[in-house]
């Protein structure tokens, strides 16, 4: 296992380099630069800005400077905010991680409960309700859900605040968590239900029941654990996506996370921020995929590395 882990972690290096290189040349190939504004700047101003940020140098030199910075952990300067990219990410990431982790916990708890209950009570009202809920959760975009939740729970019932995120303050936590977590909840519920239905028809479940075990023990001990593999497969990328922020939810609830940073950076051609957020997402997904692979071995004793 240790060798496997070291090998996988070492594989991150060429992965990060490849993603960084492709992103670097792609973003410079897109027309328009960071200082092409709606209100144009005079040529001398443009020249000084480009020099200030090394954009006057040949692209290969800029790439070399970027790589040198990357090795030392310096992602350069944000053109739009005139501050180091690492500082900006460090400021904004914790909020995205808090919100993403809470939304993931909500999605996992809700999705597993709903999926397991629906499978155990197949074709009952609760099964139909869970399918309806999962379908709504999967098909209603989160910005529509967020608007609906705010109108109902903030403006009509005054239960929660309209804006912001504050860890520990339920008035500022519930709506962003539900808005962000509903889609993954629906996905997890659907996968769990399908996986559970398959497992519940296996011979060893029949054997467990024949041995006289209670239905609760059969489901929780024998069925759920075996049904978790497909859920784990989707949970890794879901968690990576949630922890690195959501552009729509963060923008809607005015949460200063890292989710809005990438879209803003692309729109502003903020090269430093594009690279910083792209690498952050890439590393998050790679780490989560590794975590999923490792967790297979924990859940299924037959899997060995």
């Amino acid at each position: 296992m240790t060798t496997y882990l070291i090998r996988r972690i070492l594989a991150f290096i060429p992965l990060v380099w490849a993603i960084a290189t492709i992103t670097f040349f792609l973003m410079h190939a897109v027309p328009g630069g960071p200082f092409d504004r709606e209100k144009p700047l005079p040529p001398q101003v443009m020249a000084n800005l480009e020099r200030k940020y090394n954009l006057d140098k040949p692209l290969v030199v800029q790439y070399g400077l970027f790589l040198r910075g990357l090795v030392t952990g310096d992602l350069g300067q944000s053109f739009s905010q005139n501050r180091p990219v690492t500082t900006i990410i460090r400021e904004r990431l914790p909020k995205s991680v808090q919100l993403g982790a809470c939304a993931f916990a909500f999605a996992l708890a809700g999705g597993l409960t709903l999926g397991v209950t629906a499978a155990v009570r197949q074709n009952s009202l609760i099964d139909y309700l869970s399918v309806v809920l999962a379908t709504i959760g999967a098909s209603v975009p989160n910005f529509v859900l967020a608007v609906f939740l705010v109108l109902l729970f903030s403006l009509q019932l005054h239960w929660f605040d309209v804006l912001g995120w504050e860890f520990g303050n339920y008035r500022k936590m519930v709506l962003p968590i539900v808005s962000l977590g509903m889609l993954p909840l629906a996905l997890i519920a659907r996968v769990t239900r399908a996986s559970m239905l398959e497992v519940l028809h296996q011979d060893y479940i029949r054997t467990a029941r024949a041995k006289g075990l209670t239905e609760f023990r059969v489901v929780m001990r024998h069925a759920v654990r075996n049904a978790l593999i497909p859920v784990l497969t989707i949970a890794g990328p879901i968690l990576a996506g949630l922890l690195t922020g959501s552009f729509i939810i963060e923008r809607f609830f005015a949460i200063g996370g890292v989710g809005t940073a990438f879209v803003d950076a692309v729109q502003l051609r903020d090269y430093g921020m594009i690279m910083g957020t792209t690498l952050l997402f890439a590393i998050a997904i790679a780490v989560m995929n590794l975590a999923v692979d490792v967790s297979y071995a924990v859940v299924d004793p037959r899997i060995r590395y």
Binding site: V147, V150, L155, H158, V162, F252, F253, A254, G256, T260
Partner: peptide, 15 residues
């Protein structure tokens, strides 16, 4: 309060 979405700032104004 930094808010980019005016739909939501208008909701906050209502609230």
């Amino acid at each position: 309060r930094y808010i980019e979405d005016n739909v939501q700032s208008n909701n906050a104004f209502r609230a």
